[in-house]
Each structure stands twice: as C-alpha cells, then as structure tokens.
Design a protein around this nucleic acid. Structure first.
Lengths: 215, 215
DNA sequence: TCAAAAGTGTTGTACATACACCCATGT
DNA sequence: ACATGGGTGTATGTACAACACTTTTGA
C-alpha cells in the first residue's frame, strides 16, 4: 500500500462552454484574480475528487461554477505535459459543452466571485498556461469529430434562419459560401424544414425560420 | 497539504495496438493470468507514475510490454466510471498505435511472461472489465476522427495493392464497394501512384503495387 | 485451356458551381 | 422611393453509380 504513493496524481476537469449567437461561436471564460497568471482568462475547471467520475465532476463544475443546467459533454483530450501550477503537475481533462441558443440567452445563474465573459472563438484573450491550445483543440474537435447535423440540432432546438446557419458553416469551416447554393443544399439535404414563423426584427425582408430535423 | 489526499487518483494508460493484414484490421491483446478476470484478454497497459506524462508512460508501455519501437499515438478517451479492480478505481486513458505493415510483420520483440495474440477487430474475445467498449471506441475514432489518407500512409509506407485498400475501406466503413468505381476514385484522387512493381505470389493475374502519396 | 483475380470504358444521374434578377419589409 | 436583406431559377461541369468484357498469370 505504501509504494502506491508513486502512482498518485491530481486531475482537473476543464470545460469549453460554447454557445452560438447570430451564427458566431463564443466560449465562456473566467478571469483569474490571483497569481500566478493574475488577470489572465481561464476555462471553468475543478479538481477531481478521489473515486469521483470525470462525468460527475464535469457536471458539478457546470452547475456550481458556470451556472447552467447542462448534461451533455464531449471529451476532447487529456493534457499531462504542461505545468500550470509551479507547485505540482495537474492532469487536465478537457471537454465541450454545447449550449442551445435559448439556454445560452436566458438561464445562466451567475456565481458570486467569478468574473466571466463570452469571447468569440476567433479572438481569444490571453489565457492561463496552455489553455488557449486546449480551446483550439476543442474547436477542431467540434469541426472534425462531431456530426454537424447533431451539433446544429443542439444549438438550435427550435428554429433558425438560413443566414445564421450559413454564417456558422462559414465560421466553422473557414470558407465563404454562395448564399443560393447553400440554401439549395440545405433544403435538399432534408435536415431542415420550413416553418410558418418569420423573424420579427431584421432590417430588410423578414427571414423564415427553419426547424432542424435530425434522427 | 494534508487534505490534498482527497484529490489523489490513479491512472493507467491503455494502448489499442492496431495493424493491417491483407486489408483487415487486427488488434494486439494480452491474456490475463491472475484473478480477477483470469483467462480474459486485455489491452496492454501500465499505471502512470506521479508527474510522468501520459505520452511518456504510453511510449514506455509500448516498448517494454508490447515490444515495438513506435512513437505515434492518438488519444481516444478517458474512462473513470467502470471499476476494473475491486480494490480501487483506476482512471483509464486510452490511445491508438497504428503500426505500419512492415513493422507489424517483423520487428516485434516478444516480452517474457506475456501471452499475446492478434484478433480481428470484428471478432474480439472475452475481455477484462469494460475494455471491449474501449476497443469499439478506438475503432470509431479511427473511422471518424482520423484522416483516412494519413492512416493509409502510416499503414502502408511503401506500397499496397488496390484490392487491399478496398478491403480496408469496406471493413472500416462497413459497406461493399464496386471494384471499378473504387479504382477510378482512388486513382483520380491523386493519393496513390502506380509503381512498376507487382505482387509476386497471388493466384490469378499479379496486382500492381501502388505508392501512397500524401502531404 | 481453365480458373482466378486484375484491369478497363461508357453512360446516365445526381450534385456542386457560377451567376442575375425579383420580393417583402422598415424608414 | 429606396435601402436592406430574403428568396428563386437556369446552365454548365464534375463526381459517382451501375454495369460487362478483356487480360494476365499459375496450374
């Protein structure tokens, strides 16, 4: 039992909380108020208790630190090489939480003592340790490993305009698309369906809302 | 420092060592010789030392337990919920090692005391704990997350026949393909290039060898 | 000369691209 | 009436699917 000590390690879970707004992706970061890295931004995270599952710890962090009632997470990667704290090595276990549009707009409970802000994924602030690399990994995971249709269904549980979808595709895959061809492709692929509702605000002609139909 | 104890956890790395033979994928497993799960098969694995990186531990396991000089690994997932040992929870950190065809044929040093065998990925034996699920996850990762062209380049560093490639595609994506269309697509996609060499053995007409050209 | 596997060509269809004009609304 | 963004159609090219016959080898 004594030489078990050689195998003790600390872990923390880190969450890439991601929302969409007008087709643009944003990530929720917290400002660090103590040294080291005072003033830098960081992912929401918690240390993993002995015998606790990573899933449990992630959920707990989401509720108690981030303030969303959200249960679906996607594991991205594990980081054991970079040293965040000068005292000891902590293994980082990073995941993605994809918020649906309505949840992101309304439901968050702000937690006292944590200054937080949404950042566009294309314009991240200075971040603690190797966490910027973690965010890049998470976005790549979103892009390459997750099924785009399911992602859309999660982000837009009710309805969405074609403009928003196109912006999202363009941002995610980093290429401009022709509006007319994009529309044809989306409608032809049977993953969206026109509704009778229309967007109310808007400058020019009101856009129709479409429903995402997957599975 | 004392209450740090609440955060101590044990980790083990596990490796899905995968090779290809005649277009079919195989995984290397070891037979467990002690209870619990005596006689069941398991992934090569080691406990992670304090402060050791996962990458280092994985490499070490590859050399000392598996017997290949192999350096490229792809992280798949982390498992903290299932209990493999009745005594305490160990967090499993699983990765893939894709062996190139020649290495898999020749270079392995057998390690004393470990009975091992290659199993087709479609026909796994009874396995320790939740490890069969880990293998399924790894194959899905190979299928969905890794770039197929790079995978081919790794598996076949020198040359390959179109038949082998087609078998591999069919096994990985679980669908039959038309031989003529497959050939046209591969040759048109510029990822392979005909060589002057031909396969020597073979029953019927000898197949040309093709070189995989990526990047 | 036969069996076994490799190699080749044509045609129709579906999908992607490129591009220009009309429509519904708020100001 | 005009500015703003939404919505539509057509022509062309490219990629893929379906399909049957010929070639090269070993036995």
């Amino acid at each position: 039992m004594r030489d078990d000590r050689n195998y003790w390690n600390k872990l923390e879970v880190l969450i890439n909380v991601i929302k969409v707004e007008n087709g643009h992706l944003f990530i929720l970061l917290f400002k660090k108020r103590t040294e080291p890295y005072k003033g830098y931004w960081m992912l929401p995270s918690s240390l993993l208790f002995t015998d606790e599952t990573i899933e449990h710890c992630t959920l707990d962090t989401m509720i108690n630190m981030v303030g969303y009632d959200h249960k679906e997470f996607y594991h991205v990667n594990v980081y054991s090489d970079k040293i965040k704290s000068p005292v000891e090595r902590v293994i980082g276990c990073s995941s993605i939480a994809l918020l649906d549009e309505n949840k992101a707009k309304k439901e968050r409970k702000k937690i006292a003592g944590f200054e937080s802000e949404w950042f566009p994924i294309s314009d991240l602030p200075k971040m603690v340790g190797n966490q910027k690399e973690m965010v890049v990994d998470a976005i790549n995971y979103l892009r390459n490993c997750l099924n785009i249709n399911k992602v859309l269904k999660i982000l837009y549980p009710q309805y969405v305009t074609l403009k928003e979808l196109q912006t999202l595709y363009e941002e995610l895959y980093e290429q401009k698309l022709d509006r007319r061809n994009f529309r044809k492709k989306m409608l032809g692929s049977k993953i969206i369906e026109k509704t009778e509702q229309k967007r109310v605000k808007s400058n020019g002609r009101p856009a129709s809302y479409y429903k995402i139909i997957v599975e």
